[in-house]
């Protein structure tokens, strides 16, 4: 098997990662770099638990061949944690009880962050559309939608202030 060395910038750090030909970005992030916020809910692109940002765009790590990320900037929830832009989203998820088992939550947070970057004041329909690739089996989605609405309000309120 041929191994290739990828050059990635992951959560702000330049990293060289040797990978085999079939490796996915999910395996690189979870198994090699120990970024365990990247959850493996299906490895089929069907649940959104492994949502990450590649060059700022929302992507599913499980469907991304590792080689396709060569030279890219990859951001996981670990990289967003405690940043000014994510804290209000985290706070809103907490206040709205927008997680139960929490397995889908990292993906939801990353998807929400991607949404609010490109659309700081999304409508309810736009929120639902943006999160439609992220499944949750516990909450019935209502608290998650409310959490995103509140986070958007908090963030845009901050910006306008």
């Amino acid at each position: 098997m041929t191994t290739k060395v990828l050059r990635l910038n992951v959560n702000g750090e330049d990293t060289l990662v040797p990978v085999g030909p079939m490796a996915t970005l999910q395996e690189v992030l979870r198994d090699k770099l120990e970024l365990t916020s990247v959850k493996v809910g299906c490895a089929q692109g069907g649940c959104g638990s492994c949502s990450v940002l590649i060059d700022g765009e929302l992507r599913l790590a499980c469907l991304t061949p590792a080689e396709a990320a060569d030279g890219c900037t990859v951001t996981t929830l670990e990289g967003l944690n405690e940043s000014n832009s994510i804290v209000p989203i985290q706070q809103s998820f907490i206040e709205n009880y927008a997680a139960q088992c929490g397995f889908c939550t990292p993906g939801m947070l990353v998807a929400t962050k991607a949404l609010l970057e490109r659309n700081p004041k999304p409508s309810r329909d736009e929120i639902i559309e943006a999160l439609s690739g992220n499944l949750c089996r516990c909450t019935g989605y209502l608290p998650i939608i409310k959490a995103v609405e509140d986070a958007a309000a908090a963030l845009s309120g901050k910006q306008s202030a």
């Binding site: 009880y97 139960q100 516990c138 019935g140 989605y141 209502l142």
Partner: peptide, 8 residues
């Protein structure tokens, strides 16, 4: 949370 999740 249980009631809403269960309704869904």
């Amino acid at each position: 949370g249980q009631i809403v999740g269960g309704a869904w």
